[in-house]
Design a protein around this nucleic acid. Structure first.
Length: 193
DNA sequence: CGGCCGATCCACT
DNA sequence: GTGGATCGGCCGA
C-alpha cells in the first residue's frame, strides 16, 4: 500500500494538488467494510482570498476551523441539510486551503456501495457528484477533522497517471455568489482512463 | 433566539 | 427540466 504522504498534502499550490489528486484512490473503512474509488473530479478552494471558500476573509468558526489544521485531514460539512461533502485540507497549519472531491469511480467494496446507495444494478452505481461520493463511501460530517494518515479515511497512489492533456479545467459548481472568483477554472476532471 | 440559505440529489413529468 | 426534501451554520436582533 502506498499512502499519500504529508508532503503531498502540505504543498502550497492547492490548484496543483487538486490536479494531482485525479487518478488517486480514495479509501474508507467506516463501519461496514472497506470501500474505495478512483478520484475523477476535484475542485480547489484557495483560502482566505477565495470568495468561494468558507474561509474567505479569514473566517474562523467551529466548522471552518478544521480547514486551518495542518494539511492531511478531512473537512466534511453539511450542504442543503442533506449531503455531507468531503474535502481534503491542504497546506500548512493556519492556511485554510482545501480540495473538494466531486466524483469517484467505484473500485473496492462494490457490494457495500450498492447497499449504501440502495441500488441492485452495478451499472446504476453513480459516483458523480460530491453528495454521492460521501454516500458511497459512508462519509458523514461528524468525520470532519479526521486524519488521512489513520485507518478510517485515506488516499493511495496506485501508479495510475493522468496525462495533463486529458485533464479538463472548468469553473466551479454552485459558487455564483463568489463574484469574479466564480469564474476561476479550479474544477478538474478526466473522463477516459 | 429566529430566520434564511446553501460547494445537492432524486423522483417525477 | 423541475420542484421538493430537509437541517446545521451563520448573522443580525
Amino acid at each position: 500500500m502506498n499512502k499519500l504522504s504529508k508532503s503531498f498534502y502540505q504543498r502550497d499550490n492547492v490548484v496543483q494538488i487538486a490536479k494531482d489528486l485525479l487518478g488517486k484512490y480514495l479509501f474508507t473503512n467506516l463501519g461496514d467494510g472497506i470501500t474505495s474509488g478512483i478520484i475523477t473530479e476535484t475542485e480547489a478552494y484557495c483560502g482566505i482570498t477565495d470568495k468561494a471558500s468558507h474561509a474567505y476573509g479569514n473566517l474562523r468558526t467551529a466548522r471552518t476551523e478544521i480547514m486551518y489544521m495542518d494539511g492531511g485531514v478531512a473537512y466534511v460539512y453539511l450542504c442543503y441539510g442533506i449531503h455531507s461533502l468531503f474535502n481534503i485540507v491542504t497546506n500548512k497549519i493556519d492556511i485554510p486551503h482545501a480540495v473538494l472531491i466531486r466524483g469517484i469511480k467505484p473500485v473496492d467494496g462494490i457490494e457495500i456501495m450498492l447497499k449504501r446507495s440502495k441500488k441492485t444494478d452495478i451499472s446504476k452505481l453513480n459516483g458523480i457528484g460530491p453528495g454521492n461520493v460521501s454516500k458511497l463511501l459512508n462519509i458523514h460530517f461528524s468525520q470532519s477533522g479526521e486524519s488521512l494518515f489513520d485507518n478510517k479515511i485515506w488516499l493511495e497512489d496506485r501508479g495510475l497517471k493522468i496525462p495533463p492533456f486529458k485533464i479538463i479545467a472548468a469553473p466551479r459548481v454552485g459558487v455564483d455568489y463568489a463574484d469574479e472568483d466564480a469564474f476561476l477554472p479550479y474544477r478538474f476532471r478526466f473522463t477516459e482512463f
